[in-house]
Structures are given as C-alpha cells and as structure tokens.
Nucleic acid binder design. Structure first.
Length: 363
DNA sequence: AAGGCGGGGAG
DNA sequence: CTCCCAGCCTT
C-alpha cells in the first residue's frame, strides 16, 4: 500500500462506531430511509448513481408514485419509463431498471435477490449497489465503496494511491471490508460513512474543525485534506456539431429515435446531420434523397436556432433549422422518422437539448 | 485497463 | 471555468 505516512492503527477499531454515532446526530431525513422494501431501496440506489441527493430525490418520489411495486415497473412501457427518467442523465440506468424489474417479476416471482452475490447478477447492479441493497434491506455485512468512501478513507488513512486504478480500488475494498467488521450495524455504518462524506468530509472545504475523527485523520494531521483522494485527470471534452432539421406540417413535427450506441440512446430527436465542423451551411450538407426532396418542397421559417448542451465528456453545439411543408403535399418520411402531434411529443423521452429547444421554439 | 455515458450544483 | 456526484457496462 502507498501510505502518505504511518497512520495510527488505533483508529481502525473505533472508526466504524465513531461514524455510526456521528450519523445518529447528523443524518438527513430522506424518503428512502423510511423503507425496508428492497425494491424501493434498489430504485433509490440506481437513481443516486453519480447523482446528487438533491437532484435525484424528486425523481424517486415520481417513480414510487408511478410504480409502487416492482411488478408495476415491470408492466410499464419502456418509453414511459424513459420519459419519467428524462433529465436525469445516464439513460442506460433507466433501461437496465426496466430490464431488472421484468426479470425479478417474471423469473423470480417478484422476489428480489437477497444476497450480495445474487444482487450482483442483476443488470445495472454493480459492487456498490449490491452492497447497498444487501446491507440496507437484508443486513448483510458488506461495505459500500462509492465516491464518498474513497474520499473519507483516503483522508483518514492517508492513502495516496490513484483511486482510478484497479490496484487502488482493491486497496480501498480490502480496507472497507476490514472496517465494517467492527460496526454495530452494517446498514447504519454504510449509511453513516456515505453521509459523512456527503456533508462533513466534503470534496472541497471539509469541515475538519468539527470532525469527530480530526485527531485520527492523517490528512488533517498533515494538512493534506485538499490533496486527497488522488484522482488522475479525465479525458478532454469532445466537441460535436449537430444540425437538426425540424420538419413541420399540419401542426405535426417529424421526430426519430436515437438507435446508435451513443449519447441519448433510445431518446427522441429531430432529423440530424452531424459534421466535423461547426456552422456548416445547409447547402453544403449531404442529405439522403428523401430528406433532400422534403427540403425542396418546404420553406425555411425563421433563422436557425443555435443551442449548446454540456455533457461530462462532450460539448454538443446544435443548429436547428425549421422547415415548414405545405399542408396539401404528400410527404413520405424516410425510415425512422415519424410525424408527432405536440401532445405526443410531450410524452416522448427527449434529451435536455431537445426539450430546451422545444421550450424556446413552441413556448 | 480504459473509455463511454448526462446533467446539474457548488466554489 | 473545474470538480464531481450513493457507478456500471462494454471492449
């Protein structure tokens, strides 16, 4: 192991109980803390993957209202589920949610897996989520290791390994298994260490002055809180340039589903041409024949709308051209593209970029 | 082992 | 601006 310095091994036996005690006094009142239903715990954990509590909470409330049980979710239409998920990002979570709900309902008689190993086999459930459900719903003594845990352990124990490496993940996982053994209650301890990371041992400006582990924390004792955990640089942001053609006729709009393994898979958008260069004029873009024909029959209304959407690893710049087709002209659409009424568009799952455009364009 | 996948809030 | 959030899947 790569330690910042020799840590005080006496912290290990008191670590878990110190956090459990801290938790009893500082825990937030969150809706998923009032249930032992593995379905609801699972739902909350999927929603909270890479997502802050404040952002995920309203989604959790809406999902529980729409699908009170796993069989309700299994019966749902996937498009409807994606529409509920709209705006939360990482949409594969929603697709996996539906797939696992169906599996549990149809193959497991509606009974959720009850152990870490069995939970791990479900689509969308990895080591973190399996540990969370196994401990919260079934009391299994398995540690959660999420972003909060990496931060808290790196600081308290002065671990300087790069947390993006496999070797470091193993280091933290091993330490986490050791620490949870001393917990009074594995579920409380897991909640406690994450809550502690979220509101006390925060990424920026941790509240070290009021920290119960202050005198045991290697990072604090050496003034290195802001340097831990060590996390190597991410890939640079990719620039992408989209030109959307918004065909309109008789109050309907032509939209299509994104099929490719790419951002926004299974969400809906307008006809799209992507280019390597920004702001390519319509006249210089290559269109398939059916689209070229439509462009010839229609008239451009207004000026192109220019919008930007920031993702974690991409910056999408999009130009929207509105083409109005005459009411009486027959307009066969190419495969995939379909006409939708405004009310129908509202029901479609869409990227925030598209929702923002519709908001601005239709009001 | 590395890359891809959203969107938003905080500093 | 930068960071990162109750991570997981695919290659």
């Amino acid at each position: 192991m790569d330690w910042l310095s020799d840590y005080n091994p006496s912290v290990k036996p008191v670590f878990a109980q110190t956090l459990e005690r801290w938790y009893e006094h500082h825990k937030r009142d969150l809706p998923w803390r009032h249930t032992n239903d593995p379905y609801r715990i699972w739902l909350s954990e999927i929603i909270l993957q890479q997502t802050r509590v404040a952002q995920g909470r309203p989604y959790y409330e809406r999902f529980v209202a729409a699908y009170p049980t796993v069989s309700d979710m299994a019966r749902a239409d996937e498009r409807e589920l994606l529409r509920l998920w709209q705006g939360l990002g990482y949409y594969s979570r929603a697709r996996n949610l539906h797939q696992t709900a169906r599996y549990v309902t149809l193959q497991l008689n509606g009974k959720f897996p009850e152990t870490y190993d069995e939970l791990l086999k479900m689509k969308g459930i990895g080591s973190y989520t399996a540990a969370a459900i196994a401990s919260f719903a079934f009391g299994e003594r398995v540690p959660v290791v999420d972003g909060n845990v990496y931060r808290v352990l790196a600081r308290v124990f002065g671990i300087t390994e790069d947390i993006t490496t496999t070797k470091a993940k193993k280091t933290f996982a091993t330490l986490a298994v050791e620490l949870i053994q001393a917990a009074d209650n594995p579920a409380t301890y897991n909640q406690a260490i994450m809550e502690f990371g979220a509101i006390q041992c925060t990424p920026v400006a941790p509240d070290c002055l009021l920290c119960p582990l202050q005198q045991q924390c290697q990072a604090y004792l050496t003034g290195r809180q802001h340097l831990l955990p060590v996390k190597s640089k991410k890939a640079p942001v990719r620039e992408r340039y989209f030109t959307y053609i918004v065909f309109r006729q008789n109050g309907k709009v032509a939209m299509q589903e994104r099929i490719a393994r790419d951002i926004w898979q299974n969400l809906y958008e307008f006809f799209l041409v992507e280019d390597e260069e920004p702001a390519v004029p319509l006249t210089r873009l290559a269109f398939p024949d059916p689209i070229a024909a439509l462009l010839k029959k229609g008239v451009q209304t207004g000026v192109p709308v220019d919008m930007m959407q920031l993702l974690s690893h991409q910056r999408v710049r999009a130009w929207f051209y509105e083409i109005e087709l005459p009411d009486n002209v027959d307009t066969p659409l190419p495969t995939g593209l379909q006409w939708y009424l405004t009310a129908e568009i509202d029901e479609l799952p869409k990227p925030v970029l598209i929702t923002n455009y519709l908001q601005r364009s239709l009001g």
